[in-house]
Write a protein that binds this DNA or RNA. Structure first.
Length: 112
DNA sequence: ATTTTGACGACGT
DNA sequence: GACGTCGCCAAAA
């Protein structure tokens, strides 16, 4: 049987796919929405395994709490993540999302 | 089995 | 407000 942790990952992917076009969220917010507010790192770890998922996970829409593209180094290209975000109308300067508050999408608030 | 690390976050200095 | 430290929890070495 699969461990409970996989369920946690599954939930992370689920929420990540719910992020609307042109919006972003943070690892901590997702973790908090899942009831694991103190385990934001696990969300990041889940994203690391996101490639293992059959469905594509918009990991580029998930950044840290300050809107910094910390995980861009994990993408194929150096600035692929940034390009994807810019493609959605999000302004990114030096790996930092501009107007982060405007594009921020809080699952707890949006999904209630 | 123990130690280190990591796509983070909150708090202290 | 920049920088440092600790806490959380799971996976890799």
């Amino acid at each position: 049987m699969m461990e409970e942790t996989e369920n946690f990952f599954e939930r992370v992917y689920h929420v990540a796919r719910l992020i609307p076009f042109g919006r972003v969220t943070s690892y901590g917010s997702i973790a908090k929405y899942l009831g694991a507010a103190r385990s934001a790192r696990m969300v990041g770890w889940a994203m690391n395994h996101s490639h293992s998922q059959e469905q594509e996970v918009p990991a580029h829409r998930v950044v840290n709490r300050i809107g910094l593209l910390t995980g861009k180094h994990h993408f194929k290209g150096t600035n692929l993540m940034q390009q994807l975000l810019e493609n959605e109308g999000i302004v990114v300067i030096e790996n930092k999302i501009q107007d982060f508050e405007k594009v921020f999408w809080d699952p707890q608030k949006e999904l209630s």
